[in-house]
Each structure stands twice: as structure tokens, then as C-alpha cells.
Amino acid sequence: MTKEEIFNDFIKKVKWDNFQIINVCRSNRDNVQSFSFEITDKQTATNIELANKLSKENAEVAGRMNRLDEFMHTDEYNRLSDKEQRLMIIQYNAMQVYADVLLQRIDEIKERL
């Protein structure tokens, strides 16, 4: 069997047995190639992926909150009607709740890992 066939066979067995490769390291010392793999069960890999997605989403919400907060300290904001200003404050508070819920979900997922 060639190295590639051995490698492909290994990957098939990992997938078939409900595991997932989450990291591959390859080195080439003294013209000898070696590989190492970090493997986890698919549920854990799914949880890691979900936590990463939620973290990214939380960062996006935090960016929007920062931009809104900056706007709320401008003269342009002060020229808006009282109703528009109140709605922006409500929007900002809702975004805070949303971001907090995302963080709680991330914590719950991390506890399962």
C-alpha cells in the first residue's frame, strides 16, 4: 500500500467509526515524513464548530453595538427625534441581551466539551 492509500484508508475508518479529524500536523525531518492527528467524536466536533460560530456571531454583534454606541454620542444622534433616540436605546439594549444569550450558549456548549 502506498502512503496515500494508507492515509485515505485511515480517514475512511475514522469517518465510518463516527470520529472526526480536527487537526493534522505534518513534519518532514531528515527526509522522513510524519503525520499526527487530533481526533474527536463527531458530537464534540459539532459542538466545537457551533461554539466557534456563536463566538463569531457574538463578535459581529459586539461590533454593531460599538458602532451604534459611537453614533449615539454624536451631534447627528442628538438631532434625531426623541422617539428615534428611544428606539435606538431600545435597539442597543436588545443587542446587549442578544449578546449575553450568545455568551451563555457558548458557555453551555463548552461545559459539554
Rank of each mutant, 00 (worst) to 15 (best):
L50E: 05
I48W: 01
D100C: 11
T74P: 01
N93C: 09
E38T: 11
N8H: 12
I90M: 13
N66W: 09
S36R: 04
V61E: 00
T2K: 10
N93A: 14
Q104A: 08
R29M: 07
I6L: 10
M88C: 08
T74L: 04
N66S: 13
A94T: 12
T74M: 02
R67P: 05
T40V: 05
F71L: 00
V101Q: 09
A45C: 03
C25I: 14
A45N: 00
D69T: 05
M95Y: 06
Y77H: 05
Q96E: 09
Y92I: 05
F7E: 02
K53D: 04
I11F: 01
D17H: 10
E76K: 05
G63H: 11
E76R: 04
K56L: 14
L54F: 01
E49N: 12
E108S: 11
Q104H: 11
R67H: 07
N78V: 07
K3N: 08
A59P: 07
L87V: 11
F19N: 06
E4Y: 13
T40D: 04
E60N: 15
N66Y: 09
R79C: 05
K110E: 01
E38Q: 07
N31H: 05
F10M: 00
R26S: 12
I21Q: 02
K56Y: 15
I39W: 00
K15M: 04
